[in-house]
Design a protein around this nucleic acid. Structure first.
Lengths: 119, 119
DNA sequence: CCATATCTCCAACATTGTATGTATAATGGA
DNA sequence: TCCATTATACATACAATGTTGGAGATATGG
């Protein structure tokens, strides 16, 4: 279980959401951000919480419970932020993702490639 | 049974490799391409075959057995290519991956780590 | 005809992803 | 005050994907 610990697809999206939300990252906002990233594929809120738990187990993120806000239903939120390990992990994942995108776009750019027909 | 069938991380890499190898895509070359994409993380050859099987079950790729080549150990190879469904799937996956990369790079500012886009 | 190289494929297990349900804590109105 | 409602967190079970390690298959060269 070295630094070669690989992130799954959904874990990457959650990590990305936490990163981009900076100090506003808690369950609901993270869920919204993940759905925006994965569009048009939906994501369940429960899936986000489970994944946050697992990422925290792996020390890729850290959380702290806030004070409740005075809103209807304003329960205490748990805010998340990336650990240094998490930053390293998402950087590596992004590098792989970018290589993948570039290869796909390049291949399609050269024209001439047609998918097989379903027989 | 929508197009919302999601691809895992490794499946995306294998699909990308098959796409980019065009008519040279078989187990060994696909494995090499996947390792290049996922660098520095290694990938087992067996993992590639298992994933190819699953992608074929899902009709995202098609295969055909070639004639053996006259080389030492030149066993018959199984060549793969994307189906139309596979093409749609990888396009959607690439769109999500690109959004993810863009968010990460934007959040970090145009700082020190961004690998060249070569465009 | 055997040693070795290239390649495919299987079975078992580990990790991740998803669906669905439960729990807690706040507000505001009857 | 009590309860319906809202917002949020957390739990559990199951499905899908990822990984490992090795077992055959089929070719060549000696």
């Amino acid at each position: 279980m070295a630094d070669t610990s690989s992130l799954g697809q959904f874990e990457q999206l959650v990590l990305t959401a936490v990163l981009s939300l900076e100090d506003k990252a808690y369950g609901v906002t993270i869920h919204q951000k993940v759905e925006a990233l994965a569009h048009p594929k939906p994501a369940a809120l429960g899936a986000v919480y489970v994944t946050l738990d697992r990422l925290e187990d792996k020390k890729l993120i850290q959380s702290k419970l806030s004070d409740p806000t005075p809103e209807r239903g304003g329960r205490a939120k748990r805010f998340y932020r990336l650990s240094e390990k998490g930053e390293r992990a998402i950087k590596e994942a992004a590098a792989t993702a970018r290589r993948m995108c570039d290869v796909i776009e390049t291949t399609w750019g050269e024209g001439a490639w047609k998918p097989a027909r379903t027989r």
